[in-house]
Every structure is written in structure tokens, then in C-alpha cells.
């Protein structure tokens, strides 16, 4: 007989593998977005924490630290096995947040940077696609453990009109075909201008819906929030292999 124990905090429901911290930003979260439940092949617990201002998270404002840490601790109490969030700049608070819990935190897509760097040649560059290119500082990237050997090119999204006007501003409607065309154009141009780009890294949690199109257009690997979340989900919930011999 297998015995299951009640957890100390008695969550409302069991079986959520990944907790997604949603910080308020009123735009449509389309399929493939980190904050769309149907994006995932496994149950995720998405919870909104109103005490955090994302526009300040982007700059790493210390005023948001306590709000982020409270969200992390609350999510941990829900019994999830790992925690993510809906902004790559949550990296600003990663180190402090890991001290609060005993489960892995993959709050920022940028955490993949050191691994991507080692997967590509030393003369290659990583193009980071982000609405905040000017925030992509060495100080921030150091928080990932990135050694700084590979070149990092920050590709800003503000020239992508639909993305900038509908998703960087709060808007109740977005044309995802337009966004896709803009992002494909941006990344294709970057690949032509910088032939040493070895991989793309999408910082923003609203970008994974466009990863497939960018990979197909450029032939380059695309890492985004979902490549990281899926990796940690698999590692925190190992399954028996059902192959053949």
C-alpha cells in the first residue's frame, strides 16, 4: 500500500508541477504565452500577484523585491515543484528569491544564457530579443553565471510596431500574425547583419508563440521561456521511460 501524506500547507489542489507567477499586465496572453494555461502539456498553477509593478521589475527597482519574494513564498506554499514568472527581468531578484525556498526557481528565460553559450562556438554570438535592450547590462547578465566570453547582441522590439504599440503598452487586442511578421523580419535582419549569431534567446514571456517561425526563417536555434520551463518540469517530474529494446 502506498501512503500519501497531507502537506503542511494543505493546498487547494494537488498535482501542479510548475507555478507561474503572473504580475499584472493587461494584454491578451495568446496560446504559447507563458501566462496561457493551454500552452503547457502538464498542469500549471497560474496565480496573479498584484503587488508587483512590472515596469519597475524591468529596471530591477529594489522597491519590487519584497513583492516578488512574497509571491515566490506564496507559490511555494501551494506545493508546486518549481516556479517561473512572466518577465525575463525577474532575474534581478533571483538570487534573493532562491534563499526563501527549497525548490528550483526558473523565473527568467535569461537563466539559460550560460548553457546556450557553451553549446555554440566561442566566436559565436547570442542574440537576446527583448523589449528592454538598454537594460541588458553586464551586471544583469552576470546574475545568470554567464562568463561573458561569447558576444551578446541585444535586439530591441520597440521598432516592431504591433508588438510595441499593443504588447509593450497595455492593450486589449493584438494581431499575432502582424507580430510574427515583425519578429521574423527583425531576427532575419539580425542574422544577415551578424552572421556569427549562433542562437536566439527570447527574454520576453510574450515571445514563445513566435519561436517556431523564427527558427524556420533563420535556421538558428531559439531558446525561450518554454524551453527552460519544459526542461525544469521534466527534471522535477521524472517519468519511467516507455521505449523498447
Amino acid at each position: 500500500m502506498k501512503v500519501f501524506k497531507q502537506k503542511i500547507h494543505r493546498p487547494t489542489a494537488y498535482g501542479y508541477c510548475v507555478g507561474v507567477m503572473d504580475f499584472p499586465w493587461k494584454v491578451p496572453y495568446i496560446p504559447g504565452d507563458v501566462t496561457n494555461a493551454s500552452t503547457y502539456d502538464y498542469p500549471v498553477l497560474i496565480k496573479t500577484y498584484t503587488g508587483v509593478d512590472l515596469t519597475r521589475v524591468v529596471t530591477g527597482d529594489r522597491s519590487e523585491k519584497d513583492g516578488v519574494l512574497e509571491a515566490v513564498k506564496d507559490m511555494n506554499r501551494q506545493g508546486v515543484k518549481g516556479i517561473t514568472g512572466d518577465c525575463g527581468f525577474l532575474l534581478n531578484y533571483l538570487d534573493e528569491a532562491t534563499r526563501e525556498v527549497d525548490i528550483p526557481l526558473f523565473m527568467s528565460s535569461l537563466q539559460q544564457l550560460p548553457v546556450i553559450a557553451s553549446m555554440i562556438g566561442q566566436d559565436k554570438a547570442i542574440a537576446v530579443v527583448t523589449p528592454g535592450p538598454e537594460q541588458m547590462t553586464q551586471t544583469l547578465l552576470d546574475k545568470t553565471g554567464f562568463d561573458g566570453v561569447r558576444e551578446v547582441i541585444a535586439l530591441g522590439l520597440l521598432e516592431c510596431e504591433e508588438f510595441a504599440s499593443k504588447l509593450c503598452q497595455e492593450s486589449d487586442c493584438v494581431d499575432s500574425d502582424k507580430v510574427e511578421a515583425e519578429i521574423v523580419a527583425l531576427t532575419s535582419q539580425a542574422a544577415a547583419d551578424h552572421p556569427n549569431i549562433g542562437a536566439f534567446l527570447f527574454e520576453c514571456s510574450m515571445l514563445p508563440p513566435y519561436s517556431k517561425a523564427v527558427q524556420e526563417a533563420t535556421g538558428l536555434p531559439v531558446f525561450d521561456f518554454l524551453t527552460m520551463i519544459d526542461l525544469f518540469q521534466k527534471a522535477t517530474h521524472r517519468r519511467r521511460f516507455e521505449g523498447y529494446y
Partner: peptide, 20 residues
Amino acid sequence: ITLADFLFAAIHPRARQGHM
């Protein structure tokens, strides 16, 4: 294997067939 799955996800991203 988790590493290979991670690599595959980046070299061949799949469309997420979800809903709003």
C-alpha cells in the same frame, strides 16, 4: 536525456495549439 530534449526544443520549436 533531459539535456537532449532541451536542445531539441530549441532546434525544433513546436507551435502550441492552445486556446484563449
